[in-house]
Design a protein around this nucleic acid. Structure first.
Lengths: 242, 242
DNA sequence: TAGTGGTCTAGACCACCCC
DNA sequence: GGGTGGTCTAGACCACTAC
């Protein structure tokens, strides 16, 4: 008889969003354990099974990582397994060695039409632009141009980038407390222009894979827009379809 | 004290593989309902919760589709929602209308080096090669060359292809009882050769997206290898990274 | 009203990890 | 031995669909 709420949400989803809030607020940091399922069940006054289902979904979303016998951990880009989560480039023959990131340039600018739309900020807001090279086995394969909202990355300079040995997202997470959750990539084929061809050491006009990526943090907030040009002479972009 | 089995498999996974077997054997066909969770629980002598967990995983794998109040159904490529499961091409501005498939050629041949390796068959085994165009809004965007193991597709001819109005995989499923489960794509950028440029109506040398796909049916058995050349002037390949 | 999947609970036991 | 996540069960109730 009672009016059902038109936006009915099961208990475990409410628990999920409470845990999400705690993550967002930094109550538990990347790499750390979160409380056990029993503790969370007590804290939220629900059964362990309900907490379990919430955590199940978050583990499927790559937000948490379960380890039997040890506990549940906040996912981190410092984890070496996270390195290839957003990088789908694979050498055509052989081994999947981690690439070397070579920051080449880093400067400040004002957001133009496209950057403001992609990053969800106002026209003219401060942004940071990074140019960097990705090398596989000492050979240049990708040139990236990365656009970041200036307010989110205070104090980001070329020096900071160059002195960091891990991945870019690992730097963002450690230094700016910003965790990348998901991304969307748009791929096209383009011809190498002069400066790109020099950077990647390919003839001008060579077909390259253009990969535009928008990356989101908690709450589906876009915090990075980048365009990469991939030389696919000895590598390909691998995609699993399920 | 007892020796633990080194290949321990929980009950719900055993149930899962039993249900998988039933699917493979054709006991329930694509689009049909499978028995209710209660019935399956009785059949396998386990609790409903265990069956439920097995079905949960299979739904996540896109093998089954749950519909509250109605039942659980075998996933089918005849379902219009399945159309874009393997096709990641999206128009740059606007609407996602279903493309039109235009089969151009279909002939028999013997498997060469590459085809035999990709399809897991012997060198010289009979294969079928299909060439077809994909049109979006009446404009040619993709040219596909598709390699199929001959034994799996008896009686496949250009006529059969041309008289079928649905998707290719929907034809395979309906006519040959073959369900495509997952696929792996390798993307590169290449330059359009003469014949491709004519088919896609682009200048020779235009950068194109080369998409090589291997598609698998039950039991991870490869049953299709195709190479598509995508014109990315007005479309892009969209990929979600989670 | 009856049947389906979806949620929630409580409790028992198993597998794994660390002390 | 004691803690963690992982499995399995049984039962109650809710939400949705069909008739």
């Amino acid at each position: 008889m009672a009016q059902e709420s038109p936006t009915f949400s099961p208990l475990y989803r409410q628990i999920k969003s409470l845990i999400l809030q705690a993550l967002e607020s930094g109550e538990w940091r990347p790499g750390q354990v979160i409380p056990s399922e029993q503790e969370l069940a007590a804290r939220f006054s629900v059964s362990q099974g309900t907490v379990r289902k919430a955590i199940d979904e978050m583990a499927a979303d790559n937000l948490l990582i379960r380890k039997q016998g040890k506990g549940t951990f906040v996912a981190s880009h410092n984890d070496p397994r996270a390195l290839f989560r957003f990088l789908r480039l694979v050498p055509m023959d052989g081994d999947l060695a981690p690439p070397q990131s070579v920051p080449m340039d880093c400067w400040r600018a004002k957001a133009g039409q496209e950057a403001s739309r992609m990053l969800g900020i106002e026209l003219g807001d401060p942004i940071i632009i990074v140019r960097r090279l990705l090398k596989f086995a000492a050979k240049p394969v990708v040139i990236d141009e990365i656009y970041l909202p200036g307010e989110v990355f205070p104090g980001l300079t070329l020096e900071v980038l160059q002195s960091w040995s891990g991945s870019l997202y690992s730097l963002f997470e450690t230094r700016f407390g910003l965790r990348m959750i998901r991304a969307q990539e748009r791929l096209r084929a383009v011809a190498a222009d002069r400066s790109t061809s020099e950077a990647l050491k390919v003839p001008e006009g060579t077909p390259l894979l253009s990969v535009e990526r928008v990356t989101y943090t908690y709450g589906d907030r876009p915090v990075e827009w980048r365009r990469g040009l991939y030389s696919t002479a000895e590598h390909f972009y691998l995609n699993e379809l399920n």
